[in-house]
């Protein structure tokens, strides 16, 4: 009962925030709404018994990535209102229709195929601890982990090259 209440609360906040991100004209408000959604999703991670990922979500997404967004929005002074009507009308209608269609299909599959079992219904060790993630990361997934660090390095170099004013 309590779980259901918390789930619906977080779900409602996440969906409302997500809609705000898309429908808000001012990028600053969009970013704030996205932060709200990220928190709600993080709350769902806690509900799913994976606190490590939940806190990681707040630490990386809310603590660093979204600050970067706000930083760029302010740096470029993009906060003036952008008219949502500037997109082609057809594009909007078709986009929304296709999105709705996808939602219906995916939701139908999710409801029909996933079955009734509740998440975390399997008794035993909780999978979401930092220890479990760490052990898996540094044994079975060591190679992808190293690849991820190379990806990050490439991203750092790329970002600096791209954003630097006078490279020559």
């Amino acid at each position: 009962m309590f779980t259901a209440f918390v789930f619906y609360l977080f779900a409602a906040v996440a969906l409302a925030g997500a809609l705000f991100v898309v429908l808000q004209r001012n990028p600053v408000y969009s970013a704030l709404a996205l932060i709200l959604t990220l928190f709600a999703v993080s709350g769902l991670f806690f509900l799913l018994n994976t606190p490590f990922i939940g806190i990681l979500q707040i630490l990386v997404y809310a603590g660093a990535i979204m600050v970067l967004y706000l930083f760029v929005i302010m740096l470029l002074n993009l906060s003036r209102e952008e008219s949502i009507l500037r997109a082609h009308r057809l594009q909007r209608v078709v986009g929304t229709l296709l999105g709705g269609l996808l939602l219906v299909v995916v939701a139908a599959v999710a409801i029909r195929q996933a079955g009734p079992g509740a998440p975390g219904s399997v008794p035993g060790a909780a999978p979401g601890t930092a220890e479990a993630v760490g052990r898996a990361l540094f044994s079975d997934f060591l190679f992808p982990f190293e690849m991820a660090s190379i990806l990050l390095l490439a991203a750092i170099v790329g970002a600096i090259v791209m954003a630097k004013e006078d490279l020559r």
Partner: peptide, 22 residues
């Protein structure tokens, strides 16, 4: 159930997708 989470995730995904479109 698991379905609840999957439907919610699908909805979030679609909202993001529509956002990219419009």
């Amino acid at each position: 159930t698991l379905s609840h989470y999957l439907v919610l995730a699908a909805a979030l995904f679609v909202i993001g997708l529509v956002g990219v479109f419009i």
